[in-house]
Design a protein around this nucleic acid. Structure first.
Lengths: 343, 343
DNA sequence: TATTTTTACGCAACCGATTGCAATCATTGT
DNA sequence: ACAATGATTGCAATCGGTTGCGTAAAAATA
């Protein structure tokens, strides 16, 4: 196992009796370099096993062709699909992706943002941690002209790019769907989070849909969860089924919650969808596994990732000092009617 | 939106009338720097919003405190949990994680390996792409003393660190479990892959378990899949149920496959587990969602990630020229008996 | 043939943190 | 009071590409 020192452009230059500047330019097909030289350099570089040192280039040029991704976790289907989308698009333009997980912790998010900045990423894509209440730690990007795109869980009142779905409309659609399936007492699970206001938006849609169909909004049918987990979903579901007449429908703003409700219903002898119709959110893989199959709202994760990466890359290309307002991209969602909400 | 130039140690040095070397040392609590100076420097650095430039440090020191992770995809539960484990451990030691997806393509794997090397990662953790047949593209790491750990899908005959489960034993256990539950004609799904020999190993365990219990190995019960996907699982399952007397059990080397079998069984009126018992592999989330709950083999993804990261970090710390044989770490698996294999 | 224009390449500074070695200052011993 | 020892800090090279500017050589034009 020989201890190969890294091969540098200096090594190539020495071998060919050329200047490093020539090597550097030849490797990038610079027009001032003759074709002969370019071929010769590339051939030699290949032979010597030259691999450019990204650090050196990044240091000098102050651009790393790296996109930093800061998300709560990679283990949620939605987020791993998001990454997948980012990665596919990034790769096409020869960008590298650094992924960091905040684990929904504000402190970690702050640290990792600093770390990304420290690594001089060219752009940042972020979905906020649940805990996050302020966005000061993102100013370092904005202030240094590093494109910043928030996805899905985006902050209010911060002029950056955003890629989202219309959570209000989606919530409205979901609820309307249940109404159309005959539900008249529809429950809703929600979760608090001031900055990433998506649950509030879905709830708004839910309420508005009820009102539009002359259905009374009952506070006891709206349950606030601490966390969007299976366990909390089970608790909330049990609370629902403890009600005197149980509700006949549920709009859960997440498939895990919806699944927990379906399974709890089964355990308690409540028939889905006959006595209790459910619609979830996200179209996670589990929605097609559970019996009955779960109706849900599509959430174009991969598409969102691609869109976010596209924005970063396009922005980097034009490299204009975009001081103007940052666009907000809305992606479409749809009701996916399956068995759990069948009339 | 002021255009803050990055603050460097030069800026701090100028402000305090000190040398950059002093600043650099003060920031890392070097013992030759007085406490006063250290405090002063840190305070000023904080005030000025100094964030160290990782690139510069990495270039100079030729170490980046970055772990490169090269895996087929992040969207599989097993792999995203693996990442999670890597990330948790890395973060504790202040390492950054770069994730790249090969999408099971050999060509992409080669490119991304080069990219990781180009980024001068301090260590690499890899789970091979399905397509990969040789490992030449990993020599650049071995040759340059960059610790390399293969996880789960590991190459044969390559002296590097490996973190795996004992797939043979796991396959044996799974099959034995079905036998103990009364199965006498057990089918098996398998998939070809020469380098990452895990399916072959599981199959070996399956066959050995049958032999040990005097059960004939029937070739028609062993179905070779092109890919480990739901769709291929459905095809294979239908093939099984087309047999004159259908088998009474199935060991599927992946929960997706097992789920596809259970659902296909339902569709065709085959009762699980009464007429057909199933055990999967991985303990993916879906195994607890499907009805009946899926018996499976635990696969300690997060633990494997932690172990792999630990190896990298430990190796980097000792920084000995470990020319000796690389250890192989076996993690434990267990049968998780749930409803789908109930006697 | 003399001169202008191209073409092709070299020189050297630069990015920002790190580090071996030299230098300066303060403190203690004699 | 002076040398010696130790505590602090400064100097300058270094890592490996990148790039503005300068120049020599070749080609084009007068």
């Amino acid at each position: 196992m020989e201890e190969n020192k890294h091969v540098t452009i200096y090594d190539i230059a020495e071998r060919l009796n050329l200047a490093t500047s020539t090597i550097s330019r030849a490797l990038k097909d610079h027009h001032t370099i003759s074709d002969k030289t370019i071929k010769k350099v590339k051939k030699t570089a290949e032979e010597m096993g030259f691999v450019p040192n990204t650090l050196a280039a990044g240091l000098r040029g102050n651009k790393t062709r790296t996109i930093g991704v800061l998300i709560p976790t990679v283990t949620q289907p939605f987020l791993s699909s998001l990454i997948s989308g980012i990665e596919i698009t990034a790769q096409k333009s020869d960008y590298t992706v650094i992924i960091m997980q905040s684990h929904d912790s504000y402190e970690e998010e702050v640290n990792m943002a600093k770390s990304l900045y420290s690594n001089r990423v060219s752009g940042v894509i972020c979905s906020l941690a649940m805990e996050t209440r302020d966005t000061a730690h993102f100013h370092q990007f904005s202030n240094n002209n590093i494109p910043l795109v928030f996805v899905d869980r985006v902050p209010k009142g911060y002029n950056t790019f955003r890629v989202v779905i219309d959570n209000y409309t989606a919530g409205y659609k979901a609820t309307k769907h249940l109404i159309e399936q005959g539900c008249i007492r529809i429950a809703h699970f929600t979760a608090g989070s001031e900055l990433g206001n998506l649950y509030n938006e879905r709830k708004r849609g839910y309420i508005e849909a009820l009102k539009d169909h002359n259905i009374e909004v009952e506070e006891e049918l709206i349950i606030n969860l601490n966390s969007v987990t299976y366990e909390d979903g089970v608790k909330a579901s049990n609370a629902l089924f403890d009600l005197k007449p149980i509700p006949d429908g549920l709009f859960a703003p997440g498939d895990i919650l919806a699944v927990s409700a379906v399974q709890t219903a089964k355990k308690r002898g409540v028939k889905v969808p006959e006595e209790f119709k459910v619609i979830g959110f996200n179209n996670d893989p589990i929605s097609q596994i559970i019996d009955p199959n779960l109706s849900t709202i599509t959430h174009p994760a991969e598409k969102m990732g691609k869109a976010a990466a596209d924005i970063i890359i396009k922005n980097l290309k034009s490299s204009k000092n975009d001081d103007d307002a940052k666009e907000i991209t809305f992606l479409n969602t749809e009701v996916l009617a399956r068995e759990s909400s069948q009339k």
